[in-house]
Design a protein around this nucleic acid. Sequence first.
DNA 1: TTGAAAGCGCTAACAT
DNA 2: ATGTTAGCGCTTTCAA
Lengths: 335, 335
Amino acid sequence: MLNGKTGAAGPAKAKEILNAAASLNYQPNTLAKNLKLRRSRTVGIITEDLTVFNTPEIVDGIESFCEEQGYEIVLANMRLFKRYDNDLTDTPEHAALFERMLRNLAAKQVEGIVYIGYHYRRIPHLPPAGSVPFIYAYCTPSDNQYSSVAFDDENASFQVGLALIQQGHRKIGVISGPMESLNAQARLRGFQRALYQSGVLYNAGFTLYGDWSQESGLLCARELIKQGVTAIYAFNDLMACGVYLCCSSLGLTVGRDLSVFGYDNQNICLALSPPLSSVEVPLGEMGRRCAALVLEQINKSADESPRECAIPCLLHLRASVAPPPEKAAAAGPEN
Amino acid sequence: MLNGKTGAAGPAKAKEILNAAASLNYQPNTLAKNLKLRRSRTVGIITEDLTVFNTPEIVDGIESFCEEQGYEIVLANMRLFKRYDNDLTDTPEHAALFERMLRNLAAKQVEGIVYIGYHYRRIPHLPPAGSVPFIYAYCTPSDNQYSSVAFDDENASFQVGLALIQQGHRKIGVISGPMESLNAQARLRGFQRALYQSGVLYNAGFTLYGDWSQESGLLCARELIKQGVTAIYAFNDLMACGVYLCCSSLGLTVGRDLSVFGYDNQNICLALSPPLSSVEVPLGEMGRRCAALVLEQINKSADESPRECAIPCLLHLRASVAPPPEKAAAAGPEN
DNA sequence: TTGAAAGCGCTAACAT
DNA sequence: ATGTTAGCGCTTTCAA
């Protein structure tokens, strides 16, 4: 009756009961309901660390999609960074924690799970056999029978390369992340493809390997500028900041003497002068895609074959990019 | 038996059963358990928007405390910003959403609730009479019978004032937030107290009102520098960035020609050159305090009188602050 | 010591 | 069209 389904007992009486319920602030007990129905309409989310900057946006995306489909979400936060001082990840403790989160979500009868990594890498932990649908976000499983959702690093980097070349740059320095980083590898591939396709010769000396820190960006920039590059593409915004610092110490003006491109489109981009061009990672969209995949699998509305999705990124071309100094060429920068 | 409580059936048999359970991946059903026990050992968290920068740290703090006490948390995210284009807050829609979140958490049998605002302000929405314990974080309720947890804006600002005065500054510009902002009001009070206590005359012309944006920081800085201030205290880091931009356009060097202090200690602080001094808001600690208050009330282990907690902030004095240009005085800046 | 049974609040299937 | 009942998976009580 109170769920609105059963036929009326005469409109008058029904209204009376409903009023009483409202005034008593009656709320059906979800626990009992789900216990009875034996389905929770709930998707579990395991986050490696909720306080890492990209995680909340992904959660938000999952939530928004689930809400549209009448599903709830329940969050299980590993707190990897807070729990251990540094990135003590992929250790036995991490494995134990993973296990615990999994059991906890299973106990809550979730119908599917999304696992959100704090940075893109191969995750050794897998759900147990016979588990509910399981999707990896911002990371990739060591066993490809599970789907994963990431962003299209390679193509974004290709676009960055094209944009710099189109402005007239031929000597473009790259400040990569560490060689082992899957992100860095993909970004390098995309960038090289842009050079290749444009017929620009690749100079390996123009690619330096930083460690994502601003300090390393500054050091690499100094080296690259010495080599005479007219543009620098740093694989994250923090290192791009380092390039800015290097320029200011050398008396160079970014966006005139040197063009700079970053990655992540963090809030610092607009705080810098001139604003830093950067690649925006489609975090919300990734979340929504994860949710779509999980719900598909839950409802078996699509074939079960695992997929590796790569959502396209968005380029923000800003005043930090301009034609190289010598030639007063082509198009003015947007934004 | 499986919960380890009931006496043994002989160690051998017990072990056998436990093994079987483990191999079948048996996990007690939380729904059924909580339904039976009629207590969930769960605290609900309502966030106005999880993607606002300060929210995840507060959630993390609540989580860490709850975990220590054997409580779980369940998150209800209003997604205020995503749902409505801009800050359509404190509207009928917001009220309806609040109501819905509340009912949802009640249906899940949470034993207490923490409400996290996205910025500090008075919240008109109250839990219904007879609700479970309810705490406000990063905001304050319109009815003071509920406890709230915030940070000690006034004192932090007092310390900033003291630090600048101690460096020898007497003409200190302030770029405040909007007049209506409770944060801005408290920060102004604290700063003025520092002046007063140090016997420095307050010049109302040195206080300008920005709108938290970098652009407004730049504009106000231009005006203040024209008036001859030797230091500028901006009420957030973004406006402090504006001050940096202004300096660079005027050929002034921050940390030498002009000292700058910010607020929020966002990651931009260390990306700027020189690094920006700033006030760190104790978000994690606020979360822990909220959790402590909720659990106290749940377990009636403390008196029920509502409290307004203000957690102390942490000052980061960096190279953006130095003695004023004329006098080659006193202490070198710490990092 | 061990086992059986009642009941948490709900829904769905079944009688009336 | 309405009322009754069985049972979801667990814990706790009570009986054997």
